[in-house]
């Protein structure tokens, strides 16, 4: 059975110490995080910053869009060959616009989809939380097994937590 434990701090340095204490106590990265009411610079608390995969979405989308556009422009021109201005049937400059537009369109749409996926919203199980975080308190939250909860609480208290909450 896993348990969520939250330590509340009114000093950002204490919260950073709590993160160090949890690391030192052997809790794996990704099981604990810092909750703030305003964005601190990334890494300010020594928190684990997971690698996002957003860049894959526009790249994949652009490849799909480019391929579709290539098929569309080639197939339509071959199916309905009209020589225009003495240029070849498959004229690159005429195709470039469609290739560019469809690549971009597909990249943008897939990025929107990617952001929805990466955002992981709505967060249906936010775990333990305290409304005072939006007032400026800093929360350090850890999700761990029941038998390790006391170790986590000790680490959080050791860094000077003003309050501990569990759920």
């Amino acid at each position: 059975m896993s348990k969520s434990v939250l330590g509340l701090y009114d000093d950002a340095n204490q919260a950073a110490d709590a993160m160090d204490a949890l690391k030192a106590a052997g809790f794996p990265l990704g099981t604990f995080d810092v909750l703030t009411g305003t964005p601190y610079p990334e890494g300010a608390f020594g928190e684990h910053v997971p690698q996002h995969r957003l860049f894959r979405f526009p790249a994949f989308g652009a490849i799909i869009g480019f391929t579709l556009a290539l098929f569309l422009t080639t197939a339509t021109q071959i199916a309905y060959p009209l020589v225009t201005g003495g240029k070849p049937i498959l004229s690159l400059f005429a195709m470039l616009v469609i290739l560019y537009e469809m690549s971009m369109l597909s990249a943008v749409i897939s990025t929107v989809v990617g952001i929805v996926i990466e955002s992981r919203l709505p967060n249906v199980n936010p775990g333990v939380y305290d409304p005072r975080i939006t007032e400026g308190l800093i929360g350090v939250v850890i999700t761990t097994e029941d038998d390790q909860a006391d170790t986590a609480i000790a680490a959080l208290n050791g860094a000077g937590a003003m309050e501990i909450k569990q759920a």
Partner: peptide
């Protein structure tokens, strides 16, 4: 708020969303 708690991932993805919606 859709379950917003101010975690590291949420702040990071929020920046992406702002950038994306701003561009759109």
């Amino acid at each position: 708020a859709r379950g917003w708690i101010g975690s590291t991932v949420q702040w990071r993805t929020m920046r992406m969303r702002i950038g994306m919606m701003g561009t759109l």
